[in-house]
């Protein structure tokens, strides 16, 4: 990570923030929500890759990051599996 990439990453984050705020004006809620989450995921990925230097760090640290995200998804998906299919 150099000064240049840090500033570029910052600009990218602000751009994504603008996009997700503008997406609020759309009318179909499904489109709006998916855009919000896409921007959030992109912002999080940018912060983790650049500011947390995952881009240049050892595969072990990347595995830890991916593992964390997977475990949250595990918890949310299996709990939703119950809530959504409850008669």
């Amino acid at each position: 990570m150099t000064n240049r990439t840090a500033v570029l990453c910052w600009l990218g984050l602000l751009a994504l923030l603008a996009v997700t705020l503008l997406a609020g004006a759309l009318d179909s809620s499904a489109l709006r929500y998916s855009l919000h989450f896409l921007c959030a995921a992109a912002m999080a990925a940018l912060v983790m890759l650049v500011f947390m230097r995952l881009y240049t760090s050892s595969p072990l640290l990347r595995l830890v990051a991916v593992g964390g995200v997977m475990w949250i998804a595990l918890l949310i998906l299996l709990t939703l599996a119950d809530t959504l299919t409850r008669s």
Binding site: W71, L74, L78, A81, D82, T83, L84, T85, R86, S87
Partner: peptide, 20 residues
């Protein structure tokens, strides 16, 4: 980490989650 629902088979959890 994916088996915890077997504590809730009779608790009103959905039948399909129970089977899973």
């Amino acid at each position: 980490f994916i088996v915890w629902g077997h504590h809730m088979f009779v608790s009103g959890q959905s039948l399909y989650a129970g089977i899973l």
